[in-house]
């Protein structure tokens, strides 16, 4: 009974994923495509949950659906304002129908590959088995956090560098666009007192949730990436409701937060190197506090770049009290 129900549920989920994915690609209306993309992310999060991968489900919901959706909507609203001011610059949205043949061939090739891969027997002992066997040495009880911050800490360090580079890349593009642009999120008169009240209720809840996700990462699904994405969602809300305003330059505390993850991570790595060990190989007694320290720094250094990317400004500022509506 339960198994039959699982099959029906998973089957419906797969069909919905395929239909929504097709809608994302084939919808000629850009706004609909974005909304469908967000729906796709949420369905995908449920699919990851069904596959017993709550970490990926959390990341997909927070980053894939939430932050990416907000970024796409921000880009869309910018696009609309560009079209309004310069109608001759009408970017064409091409429907990919004529590429159906290539899509079908690609799907066929993928299916053939998947069929071959399914025949290959699973390796007797891969990196995963080794990692689980050595989990005790990492100071954290959660496998995914151990992999991210211990077994492949170097990769995570480089990912933080990539995120920082992305922010500076976006900023470089921003500077070359010399034409002054209207803020895509004008606040005056658009949001009533209800939205302000909602943000007032949600802000502390979001901070608590982010803190919980950060803390629980050591022994359950959670961690710096999910916590950072949740904090970034708060930043998006504050930016949308005018509690945070774009600034022409980032203040030095903001710059510090941007690089905190990279610096703390690198310093810990150098310290382990000079203490006579390998780069980023924590001594066993220190493993948990070091991982926690790195996770805290990573969380803020993940959240701020995402907020800046959404805001589309080099920095953020709180509005002067008399401007607040």
């Amino acid at each position: 009974m339960t198994e039959a129900f699982s099959w029906v549920f998973d089957g419906l989920l797969v069909i919905a994923l395929v239909i929504v994915a097709a809608r994302v690609v084939f919808t000629p209306v850009l706004f609909k495509a974005i909304v469908m993309f967000i729906v796709f992310g949420l369905l995908m999060a449920i699919a990851w949950g069904r596959l017993d991968a709550p970490h990926v489900a959390l990341a997909e919901a927070a980053i894939g659906a939430g932050i990416t959706g907000a970024l796409l909507l921000a880009a869309y609203s910018d696009l609309v304002s560009v079209r309004r001011r310069r109608p001759h610059l009408r970017p064409r949205v091409r429907v990919l129908r004529r590429h159906a043949f290539f899509a079908a061939s690609a799907a066929l090739a993928f299916a053939a590959l998947a069929l071959v891969l399914l025949q290959v027997p699973a390796p007797e002992s891969g990196a995963g088995t080794l990692a689980v066997a050595n989990l005790d040495a990492t100071g954290v009880a959660e496998g995914v956090t151990a992999v991210l911050l211990d077994f492949r800490a170097y990769d995570t360090l480089l990912e933080m560098a990539v995120l920082l580079l992305a922010v500076y890349g976006a900023r470089a593009v921003l500077v070359t666009d010399s034409e002054p642009r209207p803020d895509p999120w004008p606040t005056e008169g658009r949001h009533g007192s209800m939205v302000a009240a909602l943000v007032g209720v949600l802000a502390p809840l979001i901070v608590v949730t982010a803190g919980y996700l950060l803390w629980v990462g050591a022994y359950g699904p959670g961690g710096a990436f999910q916590a950072g994405a949740v904090l970034a969602a708060l930043g998006v809300l504050l930016r949308l409701t005018g509690r945070l305003e774009p600034a022409a330059a980032s203040s030095w505390p903001q710059r510090l937060v941007l690089v905190a993850g990279l610096i703390v991570f690198s310093l810990v790595g150098l310290a382990t190197l000079f203490a006579g060990g390998t780069f980023l190989d924590y001594p066993e007694a220190w493993a948990y506090p070091l991982v926690l320290l790195i996770e805290i720094a990573l969380t803020v250094s993940i959240a701020l770049p995402l907020i800046l990317l959404f805001s589309g400004s080099p920095g953020l500022a709180t509005p002067a009290p008399e401007d607040r509506r």
């Binding site: 209800m194 939205v195 909602l198 209720v201 949600l202 809840l205």
Partner: peptide, 12 residues
């Protein structure tokens, strides 16, 4: 929380 979100999105 879901009711809160639904109320506000409905309003908006």
């Amino acid at each position: 929380l879901a009711m809160l979100a639904a109320t506000f999105s409905c309003h908006l």
